[in-house]
Design a protein around this nucleic acid. Sequence first.
DNA 1: ATGAAAGCGCTAACAT
DNA 2: ATGTTAGCGCTTTCAT
Lengths: 338, 338
Amino acid sequence: MVHNSSRITIHDVARAARVSSSTVSRAYTTPEIVNGSTLSRVLEAARRLGYEPNRAARALATGRTGNIGVVVPDLTNPFFPAILKGAQARARQMGWSVFLADTEEDPESEYELVLGLAKQVDGVVLCSSRMAAHHIRSLWGSTRVVFLNREVAGAPAVIMDAAGGAQQAADHLIALGHRRIAYLRGPSASWSDRERRRSLRASIRRARVEIVEFGPLAPSFEAGIQGADLALASGASAIVAFNDLMALGVLSRLHDRKVVVPDDVSVVGFDDIAMAVMTTPSLTSVSVPKEEAGRSAIDLLLATLLDEPAANKRLPGQLIVRGSTGSHDSSENQVSRR
Amino acid sequence: MVHNSSRITIHDVARAARVSSSTVSRAYTTPEIVNGSTLSRVLEAARRLGYEPNRAARALATGRTGNIGVVVPDLTNPFFPAILKGAQARARQMGWSVFLADTEEDPESEYELVLGLAKQVDGVVLCSSRMAAHHIRSLWGSTRVVFLNREVAGAPAVIMDAAGGAQQAADHLIALGHRRIAYLRGPSASWSDRERRRSLRASIRRARVEIVEFGPLAPSFEAGIQGADLALASGASAIVAFNDLMALGVLSRLHDRKVVVPDDVSVVGFDDIAMAVMTTPSLTSVSVPKEEAGRSAIDLLLATLLDEPAANKRLPGQLIVRGSTGSHDSSENQVSRR
DNA sequence: ATGAAAGCGCTAACAT
DNA sequence: ATGTTAGCGCTTTCAT
């Protein structure tokens, strides 16, 4: 019976504070233009009554929801919860709520999903988006979009320097003496995958090594198992996997196949386990600041939403944050990884 | 400039279909009471114009948001993303959106958070809630609540038979010959932890074993490391950890301390890795259907929201789904784990 | 079965 | 600096 939520309205507060409802409204939206004493009177009354603005009403009146969406390919991939955690925390801190969506690694449903989300949010963060380019373009009219770990011409993005990581991994393996390195690819629609392949191939020019690629593969534990077999069959002595989940699959498979010859096989994943050398199971982790990335994405999105200049800025570490407008030469985007 | 979202309203559709806006509204909310031909005419017009009801307006008019909140202690704990994934998928499938919140394992902020969420959602799913009992009670007036892995008298809940799992683990270890078993406790506010301790202690009566407890500890990898040291110092030959994350920490620590004596130490965690025996690193996983649990929680919540009887029902496997009203004797709640 | 009209709680011109 | 007035887009009596 009792609609206990948001029971008391702006009018109740107005009455209690002996002002009009507009003043109460202003006290919340533009406190700087209301008289100091009236302001405190209103706020006090609101506090006393336990008033909280009704989000739906506000959304209807302003056209802004106060919500943002975060879209990930697969929540089960440990890479994304960390990002999501950072994003959610920051959003809340700024007074925004986050809607969550999991695309199940499907580019098509990612598009549908975001389209649906668009109606309930002011903007979305697309993490490791697999969306087709033309869909991305058609999205632009519906809502604000910030990408995380995907570069799209002219779109604001937070990226984790995938190329730099791959290069670092390759150098590491080459230094260990590996001359035939297998790369287990991720999803074909993955921007990070393209970057890593490019970077890996570039290392061929820097050293006498061979890169053998397998895939595209699903970014999963199971695919890692499969990839391990492929890689071993190819005679590679080192394996670079698209992400941690695959790397773990590789490790598991190597173990099952009793591949324990010291320094024989190295495995590298790209999330937390950036360096996982089989024979030294204490993993050297070159951890990417995922929560930080999530937070940055929110900051970038909010900047976009508040129509602040969204100035191009660079954050500490290997994160690259870019506004949508900046014309950036490529050297600017190559931030070395430390 | 162009507000591309939800541009066209119910009136546009009404005009196009030559009916009143009320009829259009009815076509969406109570199609059964509108004439078949008018209905299809309206729907067709809506489709043609690409009409989508405005959620904010609907929320304002009805008082229902169409959103539900899912609250977890820590997204970084791999246990929760899986649940969340299931929950989110089911919610979307039923036309609901999910708001996400991470409490950072803090009971106080969990309460504040849910209180905040309550205004934007029709109900919440509290996963492994650490909330104080009196806060839970005071919440009842604000929003509908369904618990996941926590029993609260009279509250609807989906639980994963923590006690049964612990018993199974203990029996397993006892069968292996262990006589001094360490239990690394989880957070003190955890219902699952209480259940497991209770169940573990019960095993003392079934066999001549000793249970030594350590904690409460944070449900983290780091705490697992710490716990491993404590357990080893106590002379225990088997370690049961509150959850997978801790178990992994234990495994890591044991490895670092070169505890590799065959059959010397066993480690058991409770999430995916229900049975992880050190000397047989291929983990025997008694996986709990986490996504299924998430889905069930949504189903239960929606049933509550739709004022359907929320009949007590039991799902396949070790999941126990309970409505809020059922007076259940304890034997009913003890569902054996398979 | 359908239409007319009031109103959900808030914001945003437009006065003053 | 504050009050008045119209809506925002939908649902929902109440008529018909």
